[in-house]
Nucleic acid binder design. Structure first.
Lengths: 148, 148
DNA sequence: GCTTATGCATAGGTGCATTATGGACTTCCG
DNA sequence: CGGAAGTCCATAATGCACCTATGCATAAGC
């Protein structure tokens, strides 16, 4: 069975990405805030209260999933459900002060962990990372156009 | 609430990483082989049959988790449990032909998806990605030293 | 005002992770 | 040799993150 991986190939990069993904997910446990939860808090902090369905679409997950996620966040006093006065069906999700605080702390922790990784790279590699990661994030963002 | 992100900072890179993580996880569903499963198949294909505990340690997950994961893989005919004749307690996990095939197909799919992202980058950014991702994978690998 | 569409919650299922626990086997040592 | 200790693995119970299917409530259309 030939599973060898040519250096620098798309396969090699794929494996590197998966390694990175796994590392982030495993180290994410510390701090008690999952990746999904962090994304939601980040969005709410950036853009203010939002409709639940809006959140689900923006995060690319199903509406029931977002309902559950908001439930968990609500249990931890990180977000709050409020009524939408302009639409009796709607629910506005709003980040709490605690939520902002926890989110910022977690983001700092993650940044520190990433920095520790980056510190072990050569200078050239560090520069490559500073270019590559935002570039990838950019095309990922562009790829999910707001299907309003 | 100030959640602004300075360009190029560790925070910005952290967010880029999380974007990448989310993208991979969302696109991972297609193909029916999770990240964890893929890692195990990859290792078994590369290194041959291994002890369950060995796998768990190598992948950095708990032993019960690996038990369950092997159960699921076994259900899908992707791996096989065999007895370790030199140790009655042990279980050797072995990838099946189907497992290798499925794994290779999935890896090709992921590589294609990544390639599509990379194709949208500038040439300079592409070069940065080719340097940065393997470098990060390397330091992540180094960071999990074999605590025998 | 009735029908249709939308927003959300709930139920039920899967996968991935954890800790706690127990059974089977090996190993070590007296 | 035989009992104690350690190792390997499985199971149980729990939590999060995802899904589809379904149903209720409200809004919007005719």
């Amino acid at each position: 069975m030939d599973v060898a991986i040519p250096q620098g190939s798309a396969d090699a990069l794929t494996i590197a990405v998966e390694q990175l993904v796994r590392h982030v997910r495993l180290s994410a446990t510390t701090g008690g805030l999952s990746s999904a939860a962090s994304f939601v808090l980040s969005r709410l902090a950036r853009e203010g209260p939002q409709r639940l369905t809006e959140l689900a679409r923006a995060e690319g997950v199903s509406q029931p999933n977002m309902s559950q996620l908001v439930n968990r966040l609500e249990r931890g006093d990180l977000v709050r459900r409020t009524a939408d006065h302009s639409d009796g069906r709607g629910v506005l999700v709003e980040v709490t002060d605690t939520g902002v605080e926890v989110f910022l702390r977690r983001r700092a922790e993650r940044a520190l962990a990433l920095q520790q990784l980056i510190d072990e790279l050569t200078e050239q590699e560090q520069h490559a990372v500073a270019v590559a990661l935002p570039a990838l994030a950019r095309v990922i963002e562009d790829r999910r156009p707001p299907r309003s």
